[in-house]
Amino acid sequence: MIAREISENRQWKLIIDQKVACIWAVTFKDPEIWQEKDRDNALYIHRIATNPEFRGNQLVQYIVSWAKGYALDNHLDYVRMDTVGENFGLISYYQKCGFKFLGLSKLKDTKSLPKHYHNATVSLFQITL
């Protein structure tokens, strides 16, 4: 999956002081998670992973800034993200980064998704451009 994302130019990294500070992936379709809303023109951010050396540096704000510009350059209407479960701390943090919390969604067809999505309820987030 990661090799495919790299070959399709959908895997990104943020470099600080010549070190990988964080990585993330994007996609332009996410029907298993966003269901009927997947018909919209959107950029979906997935799997933000931060190098422990750089935790606490508010790196999601940089990713959001980049994502908004990338989405606008590609004529997309939304930047979207999800997280598994109802983590109130994460919900608050993503809201501070500019996302609107859209609520919880119980996933239905998760066969093609990574295991942590199986039988999951997700929190959905969106920035309207």
Rank of each mutant, 00 (worst) to 15 (best):
Y93R: 04
T83E: 11
Y70L: 01
K68P: 01
L107Y: 14
Y94C: 11
D77P: 07
L76M: 09
N41Q: 15
N57Q: 04
T83Y: 07
G89C: 05
D82K: 02
L76G: 02
K111V: 15
N41L: 15
Y78M: 08
L113V: 05
L72P: 08
S112I: 13
N74M: 11
W66P: 04
L113M: 07
G89S: 10
A67I: 01
C97W: 10
R55W: 06
A67C: 02
S65L: 15
Q95C: 03
L107N: 05
E53S: 12
V60G: 00
L76A: 05
D82S: 04
T110I: 02
S65Q: 07
M81D: 00
G98R: 01
V79M: 04
Y94W: 10
T83D: 09
G69T: 05
T50G: 11
W66S: 02
T50Y: 06
V84L: 10
T83R: 06
V64I: 00
G89K: 05
G103E: 14
W66K: 06
F99W: 09
R47E: 01
K100R: 15
F101W: 14
A71Q: 08
R55V: 04
Y93A: 06
S92F: 03
G103V: 11
K115A: 12
R55P: 04
G69C: 07
S65C: 10
R47W: 01
W66Q: 09
T110G: 02
R47D: 02
L43F: 12
V60M: 13
R55I: 08
G89A: 05
E53M: 09
I48P: 10
D73Q: 14
F54P: 01
K106M: 05
A71S: 12
N41I: 10
K106N: 07
K106E: 13
A49Y: 07
V84M: 12
D109E: 14
H46W: 07
D73N: 14
T83G: 13
A49G: 10
G103T: 13
Y94A: 07
Y70W: 01
D82R: 03
Y93S: 04
